[in-house]
C-alpha cells in the first residue's frame, strides 16, 4: 500500500482531561464503568478472551458497542470519528504498516528521533521496510508513531509483549514521561510486575457468573 496522509489536526479544543466509559453487562462479561484521568495510567487485566481488546477498540470507536463513552462531557457520537481517534488513540498489539518505508508512516520530528534514541533504535531504521524490523522494533516504532500524534488518551494493547526486559523498562520510562506530560493511558497487560510499576489504577474484567 502506498503512503496515506493522516491529518494530524485538529485536536479537540480545550483541555479535556477525563474520559468516562460505561458499558452494560453482556452474556460474557459484567458491566464495566470507569473514568480515566489525564496524566494517569490505568492498567486493564482479566482472563484471556474476556474482551479486553474489544473494550479498547470500542473506546476508540473501531467496533460498534452499546456503551457510552465521553471525553469530558462530550459523547463519542458527537465527535467525528477521525477526530475522536486522534484524541483517544488505540494501538493494537499487532502493529499495522501500509507504506514502503518506516518513515513514510509519520512525520519524523526531533521528538521522534529523541524517542528512538531512548528506545536504543538508530535513525537508519526509519529508512527500512517495516518487514525488515524485528517484531519488537515494530512494536516500539508503532508506539513512537502513536505518540507523535500527541493524543490526549492512549489505549495500549499489550504494548511490550514482543520486548525483552531491558526494552520493556525503556518503554515504560517513555510511557511514564508521556503520562507526566498529561496523557491518560489505559493499558492491557498480563505482566503483574508491569502492573505494579505503571498502574495508578487497576481495572479487572470479570466473567459474568
Amino acid at each position: 500500500m502506498s503512503k496515506t496522509s493522516i491529518d494530524r489536526q485538529p485536536h479537540l479544543s480545550g483541555s479535556v482531561e477525563v474520559l468516562t466509559a460505561r458499558f452494560p453487562a453482556s452474556d460474557k462479561v459484567e458491566a464495566i464503568e470507569f473514568e480515566l484521568q489525564g496524566g494517569t495510567c490505568t492498567v486493564l487485566t482479566g482472563p484471556s478472551g474476556i474482551g479486553k481488546t474489544t473494550l479498547l477498540r470500542q473506546i476508540a470507536d473501531l467496533d460498534m458497542h452499546g456503551g457510552e463513552v465521553f471525553l469530558g462531557s462530550v459523547s463519542q457520537a458527537q465527535i467525528p470519528a477521525p477526530a475522536w481517534r486522534r484524541n483517544v488513540m488505540y494501538l493494537a498489539s499487532e502493529t499495522g504498516w501500509w507504506a514502503p518505508q518506516v518513515r513514510d508512516h509519520f512525520a519524523v520530528t526531533d521528538e521522534v528521533l529523541a524517542m528512538m534514541q531512548k528506545f536504543g533504535m538508530k535513525p537508519e531504521k526509519l529508512d527500512m521496510l517495516p518487514g525488515q524490523l524485528s517484531s519488537g522494533e515494530r512494536q516500539r516504532m508503532a508506539l513512537i508513531r502513536a505518540l507523535s500524534y500527541s493524543p490526549k488518551f492512549l489505549l495500549l494493547d499489550e504494548p511490550t509483549s514482543a520486548l525483552d526486559h531491558e526494552s520493556v523498562l525503556k518503554v515504560e520510562e517513555v510511557l511514564t514521561e508521556t503520562k507526566r506530560a498529561g496523557c491518560g493511558m489505559l493499558i492491557v497487560s498480563h505482566d503483574a510486575a508491569q502492573v505494579e510499576r505503571l498502574a495508578d489504577a487497576h481495572i479487572v474484567m470479570r466473567a459474568r457468573s
Binding site: I6, R85, M89, A92, G96, W98, R145, Y149
Partner: peptide, 9 residues
C-alpha cells in the same frame, strides 16, 4: 494496516 490508519485518525 487499514485499522492502524483508522486508529491514527
Amino acid at each position: 494496516p487499514i485499522e492502524a490508519q483508522l486508529a491514527l485518525g
